[in-house]
Amino acid sequence: MRTLLNFLVKHRAWFLFIFYAVISLGLLFKNNPYQRHVYLTSASHVTGSVYKLSNSVTGYFNLRAINDDLQRQNAELSSELLALRDQVDKLTLKVYGDSVPAIEPVRKYDFILAKVINNSISRPHNYITIDKGSLDGVRPEMGVIDQNGVIGVVEIVNDRFARIISLLNPDFRLSCKVKGNDIIGSLVWDGKDSRTALVEELPKHTVFAPGDTIVTSGFSAMFPPDIPVATVIERATTNDDNFYTLRVRLLTEFAQLSTVRIVVNSDLNDIKEIEANMKQ
């Protein structure tokens, strides 16, 4: 017993080293991102507050580019609004006289606006921290978009902050399709460049041309259908001969994110319930 104690005391530095190394390795290889504790992420109170403070300074840097994007989208929306108003006018004239009361359409998607307070694009696993949390209605597994396209999915939620898995993270696969046909592929980042990604698992009969737009499929319940994600650059070479893989240019400028929108799908809970029942 005494020799054992002596042994432990003599080599206590080694035991301490092994103890710390085991804790680190445990954190490093705990793969399921949903089980990570909120305190050890950038969405915790202390880290969130630090990033919020630094963002109050750096938030002004990209305003010009963001303003340009918003102007462009504003113009598009205005023209769309005019076209729709025109159509509504015509239809109202057509059904005038029919005394059937119009049914109030149920709004399926709603948006929560949030500010990006921390963002990375250079690591193999990239995450984004935003300044809205569960008190503002943000829940895990909600989709996140901005004025250009898809950004990611909410992963961990604190009461005031939330962490998003960026599209630039190989843990996140997005169900999407080439605009115009309904063939589903899956978009995943390959870690090379923050501006490009791959669309995998497209069947060989898919028709596409460089410049075509890739949009969300709407099958995942996180994102509304037909949100633009990327444009096709070329066919990528892979070892898998049974499917096409496309290299695509992402529409979102991940290097200069500022304000993002979190998609609130009012059907999300119902869909989850049904899926959970199906698994049982």
Binding site: F17, Y20, A21, I23, S24, L25, G26, L27, L28, F29, K30, R36, Y39, L40, T41, S42, S44, T47, V50, S120, R123, H125, Y127, R163
Partner: peptide
């Protein structure tokens, strides 16, 4: 270890800096 873990919390790299720092 404490230094590495603190930096990990800020940069969302669980355990990586903690291990290297140790």
């Amino acid at each position: 270890f404490i230094l590495g873990l603190t930096v990990d919390v800020f940069s969302d790299t669980p355990g990586m800096n903690a291990l290297c720092c140790t």
